[in-house]
Write a protein that binds this DNA or RNA. Structure first.
Lengths: 199, 199
DNA sequence: GTCTATATTGGGATAGAC
DNA sequence: GTCTATCCCAATATAGAC
């Protein structure tokens, strides 16, 4: 690593943390530069603008993460036996637990959905539309007697529960931790299966 | 109505709309005053500060809304026959559909949960902790064989699905409307019942 | 690639006239 | 209760030296 990428990385890490904590609009470039321990001008040199920095912060976590989701799904569909709903659900959710690949991905994804539409929409469309469509198709193959519209609703509610878990990690009153995310994900899968797999 | 309350109301309505659209941090007092058609100084006169305005915008929608939820629950528990899970779920969700009482409440609630913790937490604790606890108790009475911890998770996921519905109104790809909120709420209740009512 | 210094704009809040 | 005018500070972004 040269000093160049080092500065870049420090800015990205600081911005990521502050966006998660305070949101995009409430985070200033000054605060980012301060926490990164770099000069204010370096932020604009490397990313052009605050919005450019936002795009990069989001993309570098979510892109490899979504690749992993799709790889999981490919593996299931290439298998000899047809995947179960639980298999698909785990392919969709479990990457959030693989800390080595995307330790910050849960918080990044939980955060971006909470931004106003003007901020979040373009990023969501770009990064998630393929994944959402692939996984909905996978569920559709399992439940041929459920209408596409009904299936979209069920998927919608699943995503809502997942995002709420990613954002708060534990129910109000409990204190969040890495353990509670892992445990919560198991609860989520059991809960969601009941809602997804109805006649 | 005197001119006084009129100005107050115009500011509240404008702030409410802008907070929903852009979020708290991205909304300036100037933008609020402009949209309300009042002078900038009037905003500080009536609410002291931007944060005071936020508190009032939130409270005036959510307070009567939560009262209605609790009234619904009281009525159920005072009835001769024991309420079903569906009864309780409807008591919790249906106030979002009563446009005359709380036409903006769905969007307000959907929005406040998306604010950073520093903004949202104090408001959430103040306004929702009683309601959440009452409804969890009601579910606990129905499912005595499910542990309190497990029940908190299920309630947590239900709230996540509900908030996602309130925020986006329709699945990605569909276009949102009042009709889709109403229809979505029925889908949500069926979906959530399956997750809540497991052995 | 990184710094200092600064241009420029917009923010929240208030003093004081009416 | 409402206005005008303004204070003071923080924001994004860039110019230009090193």
């Amino acid at each position: 690593m040269t000093a160049t990428t080092d500065t870049r990385e420090k800015i990205l890490a600081a911005a990521e943390q502050l966006f998660i904590e305070r949101g995009y609009a409430a985070t200033s470039m000054r605060a980012i530069a301060d926490r990164a321990g770099v000069n204010l001008a370096a932020t604009n040199y490397h990313f052009g603008s605050k919005h450019g920095l936002l795009t990069e912060v989001f993309h570098r976590r979510v892109e490899p993460f979504n690749q992993l989701r799709l790889k999981n799904l490919d593996a299931l569909e290439a298998g000899s036996s047809a995947p179960t709903a639980r298999d698909i659900l785990e392919a969709f959710c479990s990457p959030f637990l693989q800390g080595d690949i995307a330790s910050k991905a849960p918080q990044i994804v939980g955060w971006i959905y909470s931004e106003p539409n003007s901020v979040a929409r373009p990023l969501l469309e770009r990064e998630f539309s393929v994944v959402a469509s692939r996984f909905q198709q996978a569920f559709a193959a399992i439940y041929p007697d459920v209408s596409a519209q009904e299936l979209r609703w069920r998927f919608h509610f699943l995503v809502g529960s997942l995002l709420h878990l990613l954002r708060l990690q534990a129910p109000l009153g409990d204190k969040p931790s890495n353990a509670s995310l892992k445990s919560g994900m198991q609860h989520l899968i059991d809960y969601s299966l009941a809602g997804l797999a109805r006649p």
